[in-house]
Design a protein around this nucleic acid. Sequence first.
DNA 1: GACTCTCCCAATGTAC
DNA 2: GTACATTGGGAGAGTC
Lengths: 105, 105, 105, 105
Amino acid sequence: MGKKKETPGIGHNSAGLPAIPEPDAGIIVKADLLSVIERVEHLEEEKKGIAEDIKEVYAEAKARGYDTKVLRKLISERKRDAAEREEQNAILNLYATAIGMDLFA
Amino acid sequence: MGKKKETPGIGHNSAGLPAIPEPDAGIIVKADLLSVIERVEHLEEEKKGIAEDIKEVYAEAKARGYDTKVLRKLISERKRDAAEREEQNAILNLYATAIGMDLFA
Amino acid sequence: MGKKKETPGIGHNSAGLPAIPEPDAGIIVKADLLSVIERVEHLEEEKKGIAEDIKEVYAEAKARGYDTKVLRKLISERKRDAAEREEQNAILNLYATAIGMDLFA
Amino acid sequence: MGKKKETPGIGHNSAGLPAIPEPDAGIIVKADLLSVIERVEHLEEEKKGIAEDIKEVYAEAKARGYDTKVLRKLISERKRDAAEREEQNAILNLYATAIGMDLFA
DNA sequence: GACTCTCCCAATGTAC
DNA sequence: GTACATTGGGAGAGTC
C-alpha cells in the first residue's frame, strides 16, 4: 500500500515548460481533468450500450425458446476451451523453440 | 410468455412454415444456435476492447500525475449523483401519487 | 397487490368509527406509521443476523477445509428437484450436440 | 494465482490427533458434513420464517390502508441514508488524503 | 407461476 | 507477492 502520492516528476523538469499539464505540481487544470473524466465516462457509456445489446440478444433467444442459462454456460465453456487451446499452442511453441524449430518459418 | 415447454406456435401456425426456428419444438438448428452464440461472443469482444480503452485512459492520466484512485472515485460519484437524481424524482412521484397528487396535472 | 393506488375505503365507511387509524382517510398517525416501519426494520435486523450466522457457518467450514462452493451447491441441490437437474443436463447436451461440441471430449 | 486450495493442516499437526475432522486429509466424516449442512438448512429455515413475518407486517399495514409500495420505499430510504453517511466520510477522507491533508492530525 | 431485479459470493486481473 | 477493484455468476425476494 505504498502509494499515496509520490508525485513523479516534481523537480526534474524544472528547466522548461511542461508540454502537458502537471497535476502534481499543484496546478490542476480544470479543463484537462474534465477531459479525462469525460473520456472515461464516454467509454463507459459505450460499454454499457454493448452490455445492453448482449442482454437483448439473450432476450431474443429466450423469446425464441432457448434456455438462456444453458446458453451462457455454453458460451463460457467455449471461452474456456479457447483459452486452453491458446495455452496449448503456447506450450507447443515453447517446445518447438527449445528444439530450434520455428513453427512459422 | 410461457416457459418450459409450451412450445409457442406449434399447432397454431399450422398454415405455413415457421419464420423462425423453434427450439421448443425440439428441433435445434445448428446454424441458428451458432448465430446466437457468435453474436454474443462478438459483442463481448467489443466490450472487452472498450474496457481496455478505459484502462489506457487511466494509464495515461496516471502517467501525467493524476491519482487514479481518486479519479475513479470522482467518476463513480458523478455516476451516482445522476442516478440519485433520477431516484429522487421517482420517489417524489411515488409519494405524490400516494397522496393523490398528480405532479403532471 | 395489483393496483397502483386504489385507496380502499375512502368515504364509504361512514357508518362507524374505526378502531384503528385510517391512513386512507388522510389522517396519518405518525406514531402508528413509525410503529410499522420499526417493526419491519427490527425484523430485517434479525434476518440480517441470521444471514450472518449462515456466513459464519460457511466460514468455519471453510477454515476446516471444506470447499464452500461445493457445500452451497450441495445444499441448493438438496432443495432442487432431481428431475430438473436431469433436464438441465439434457438440454445442455442437446445444445452442445447441435453445434457439434462434445462436452465429454 | 497459484493454488487451488491450499489444504491447511496437512503435515503440520503430525504430532497429535486433530481436534476436528479434516476434510482436506481426504477423510470426509459423514456426520460432520451433515452437521454443517443441517446447521445451514436450519438457519435458512429461520430466515425464511422472518421473511414471512415481514410479509405479514406489510399485509397488516396494507389492510389498514397503507400503501405498501411507499412503505417499502421509505424503509429502504432510511437504510440508504445511513449507508450514505458512511460513504461520504470515506470519500471525504480519500480526497483529503489525496491533497495531503490529514483529517485526523 | 414466471420474470425481473438485487445482492452476495467467487474469480480474475491489476496495481504497488 | 499481496491486496484491491472490478466483473461475472448464482441464489433469493418481489412484482405482476
